[in-house]
Design a protein around this nucleic acid. Structure first.
Lengths: 335, 335
DNA sequence: CTGAAAGCGCTTACAG
DNA sequence: CTGAAAGCGCTTACAG
């Protein structure tokens, strides 16, 4: 049973395919008598006609498909982002194609190629280290594209970021005001600018601090996060830490660190204080409520789609960047 | 700058588009002299040609696009499933379009229509209550489709499920063997068969139990899960429970319940024992390691894609169902 | 070894 | 108010 086409309707209605196309697509009014309209709608209904968007796409050169590349869709931050993007996209009639780059520049490139071949109208991407060339090519070809979460230093590209450095700095100042003997920054060994910004903000605040404070860093790679964090925390905190503060620069790192804390029965905030970038449902299972930095995911998604839709409508890539504000949500984990 | 087409290559190479098409697509050998091949490949390379899959799709009636409908992509179970499906799909050359139904039959239907219009080659869906008609229509139209996670009683449809009832029964027997004064089942108010199966398994084990045991049920709706679970647990457990066991039929419910337990400083497993369906990173932050039932997500994804690919290759919908085994992962939370 | 041509299902300027 | 026709970028049977 072949899927019915516009031609089938035309034949059944005794009119041309052009007429059918006009009736089915055009805003009410103009052309076509009410009688033929009715007839065509009826036939379309009874034979269960649905348009073939592929054919339409070929003609109109627009697919209403958007490509989304995240580092890993199973990561909580990205799955929430994806969900918000999905909702915002749907409102403008777009559907999302999704791919995970695994922080691999080669795979990232493959995905952009795949999406471009699928003729997506635009892409929303979280760039990975080493993807500069890929993005530059896309931009040079006027491919509508926006970045989310991340950006790349050398590439001028439209996108959404948050005030990573600023919020990190503010938060750190807050830590510095309380008299911790040690502040430990837990972050990534990385070149990704948005993550480095978080670290710069932290360092900047530390440098400007009046009173001296001992600062330590735990910087981990992307593999075996939990194990690395546990090991290093053990060395630094020992079993009976006193008056330390931990600054986690992502929710994954926080989960890794908090799991160490729970397992060793360290009291928060009595023995160590905790503040973390990003939220996660997991905090609910920790004995103390966690102070965290909240990114405006919904707003980020909305702005990203808006920015992309503008580019698509104007057939251009722009370098327009939007910066949104994360905010600190104070809870009991910070003394 | 228009995207180069096969025609541009043909012109530059001084051959026909047919020849270009053959060279670019066909397995090595046959037809076409090595010389023209070389030339065509070179030109394609230098003008940066990438095929327009839309055009190909229109001709070949296949898009290499798969539609995935989950209840909510930001739900941990589904985002992990999506990730696994993505990987398996990519291996067979498919790309995933994703949509969230929000347990809403109307939205579910909209998504299938959208995907069908986008001419996806097949769909992987987690059906919602009330989506029987929608699925039957799809199947009647020979649309390749498989269900994941869930199934519907009245519809014969290919798909992957796990041994929900059986694993629930086995696990409950384990609980019954230990001398708990009370066993509380925490599940959903729902019509979804796969969730009811978990409850049937539990009930069946309870009925067959030799020694009498007090059994209570907490059944919640989909909204405000945390609050409802907290309230009911408070009534049933009080502040100082003794010797009770909690059986959570999903990870979301478990997180809700465990957060109550943590906040009230109830000791696991000393005061209550806990077992939960599905895993989540959140367990890491709970003081006691949680005993949970592990679904073979990767295998489920692999089988789903395989089943779907078979249907696509054979142009048919089948009712073939695959059942995989979840297994209990014993940890300290079960005394 | 290679090309001319039809056709996939639409849209849309043009003509009447 | 309506239709004939070209064309989007491919694939592929057919002919040579």
């Amino acid at each position: 049973m072949k899927r019915p086409s516009i031609k089938d309707i035309a034949t059944l209605a005794g009119v041309s395919v052009a007429t059918v196309s006009y009736v089915l697509n055009k805003k009410e009014g103009q052309r076509i008598s009410e009688e033929t309209r009715k007839k065509i709608f009826n036939i379309a209904e009874t034979i269960n006609y649905t348009p073939n968007k592929i054919a339409k796409s070929l003609k109109t050169n627009t697919t209403k498909l958007l490509g989304l590349i995240v580092a890993d869709i199973s990561n909580e931050f990205y799955s929430h982002m994806a969900r918000n993007l999905e909702d915002k996209a749907l409102k403008l009639g777009y559907t999302l194609i999704i791919g995970s780059s695994d922080e691999n520049a080669e795979k990232f490139k493959k995905l952009t190629e795949l999406f471009s071949q699928q003729q997506v109208d635009g892409m929303i991407v979280a760039p990975v280290a080493g993807s500069e060339k890929t993005l530059e090519n896309l931009i040079n070809n006027k491919y509508p594209i926006v970045t989310i979460d991340r950006y790349l230093k050398e590439v001028e590209i439209a996108g959404i970021t948050i005030n990573n450095q600023e919020i990190a700095e503010t938060t750190t100042h807050l830590l510095l005001k309380k008299d911790f003997s040690t502040i430990i920054y837990i972050g990534y060994k990385t070149e990704l600018p948005h993550l480095l910004d978080r670290q710069y903000g932290f360092e900047k605040a530390v440098r400007s601090s009046e009173k001296p404070v001992e600062v330590q860093y735990i910087l981990v790679g992307l593999d075996n996060i939990a194990k690395e964090v546990h090991l290093q925390l053990e060395m630094m905190l020992g079993k009976t830490p006193a008056n330390a503060a931990l600054y986690f620069s992502s929710n994954k790192l926080a989960v890794a660190g908090l799991s160490y804390i729970v397992k060793n029965n360290i009291k928060v905030p009595e023995q160590v204080s905790v503040v973390a970038f990003d939220e996660t449902d997991a905090y609910d299972l920790f004995p103390t409520e966690i102070t965290y930095i909240q990114q405006p995911i919904e707003e980020m998604a909305e702005e990203a789609i808006k920015l992309l839709d503008e580019q698509i409508s104007n057939y251009t890539a722009t370098g327009k960047r939007v910066t949104l504000s994360a905010k600190l949500v104070p809870k009991a984990s910070l003394k």
